[in-house]
Design a protein around this nucleic acid. Structure first.
Length: 163
DNA sequence: GTAGTACTGCGTCAACAATA
DNA sequence: TATTGTTGACGCAGTACTAC
């Protein structure tokens, strides 16, 4: 799914003429008990009554074109609603993922800190004079770095976070 | 109570992608 | 190639909140 579509800002004259239907639809919604954020089902019933597919009079071409347009608008209206629902769901999923990853990051930092401490204790008790372990993970000894990578992979396998 | 503002959801248009 | 599905952009209406 690409989100980088170039905006287009020009609207032909018919757009503004068609906008009257939008206003009347808004009025319908304001009559509903819950206003614009009311139940979708209630709205859809009205829409089906106003714009839904109907039987086509075969003799009237203009009428058929109008019907096709109404049908297209109806489908697009439903599609837009579904598209927004999916988008909200996706954003919610991303937000959850951020929370999970932040928690993982925190626990990994804590784990790393503990492992560093263990590493330091082991080498200080061995009696061998060793240089102080480096602070940054990038400078850790190869063995310890391998262990760290293993630990991270293990934790990530326990918390699958996909949207 | 009222005006102003921010936020939200909706319908529509238009452009693009996928499909028949 | 025509049709259909998807989605960003736009403008509108309703609601909630705040300052006055």
């Amino acid at each position: 799914m690409s989100l980088g579509k170039a905006p287009k800002l020009e609207y032909p004259e018919p757009y503004f003429q068609q906008h009257d239907s939008c206003v009347s639809y808004g009025d319908q919604m304001s009559n509903s008990p819950q206003g614009s954020s009311g139940s979708i089902g209630h709205i859809d019933n009205n829409l089906n009554a106003d714009f839904g597919p109907e039987t086509i009079n075969p003799g009237d071409l203009a009428d058929e074109v109008a019907k096709k347009r109404a049908n297209r608008l109806h489908k697009n209206r439903v599609a837009a609603r579904e598209c927004r629902r999916k988008k909200k769901e996706y954003i919610k999923c991303l937000e959850n993922r951020v929370q999970i990853l932040e928690a993982q990051n925190k626990s990994l930092i804590e784990e790393l800190s503990k492992l560093k401490e263990q590493y330091q204790n082991q080498h200080s008790h061995s009696g061998v004079t060793q240089p102080q372990p480096p602070v940054h993970a990038a400078n850790l000894s190869g063995q310890f770095q391998q262990f760290t990578v293993f630990a991270v992979q293990s934790i990530l396998s326990v918390f699958p976070v996909e949207c």
